[in-house]
């Protein structure tokens, strides 16, 4: 069965690009364009993985991650940050809140896919 990935990013074109790449590699993709919707879709869709941007208006990536990780229904879903913020502090913070990985923008598709497959163990 296809693994389902939720892409949360406020930049529509980024979502489009990431979704295109994931679909081409055999994943099922759903998208959300802010943190609040990201959390709601995580609850509703129960994806196998969430790819989460950090800097978003309203509920940002860290907050969305915290919401996912503190709700028992979604806490087990792995979340990978996909962000242009790539400083040591950002990586550390994401890990602290419970992220399973960190992909920096601009990403190389091969590397992103490799990380995703590792987390999903596929």
């Amino acid at each position: 069965m296809k693994k389902k990935i939720l892409v949360v990013d406020d930049e529509t074109y980024i979502s489009l690009m990431v979704s295109g790449r994931l679909k081409a590699n055999g994943f099922e993709v759903v998208t959300a364009n802010d943190g609040q919707m990201g959390y709601e879709k995580t609850l509703a869709e129960k994806p196998d993985l969430v790819l989460l941007d950090i800097m978003m208006p309203g509920v940002d990536g860290y907050e969305c991650l915290r919401m996912i990780k503190t709700n028992a229904e979604t806490a087990a879903i792995p979340v990978m940050m996909l962000s242009a913020k790539a400083q040591q502090a950002d990586l550390a913070k994401a890990r602290e809140v419970g992220a399973s990985g960190f992909i920096t923008k601009p990403f190389k598709a091969d590397e992103m896919l490799a990380q995703i497959r590792e987390v999903l163990a596929v």
Binding site: E11, Y13, R21, A84, K85, T104, K105, F107, A109
Partner: peptide
Amino acid sequence: HELRTPMTIVREGVSQVLDGI
């Protein structure tokens, strides 16, 4: 950060064409 977002779009767009997707 602001530069990286459009760069990501350009890079991935070019990559997808290049990869034959």
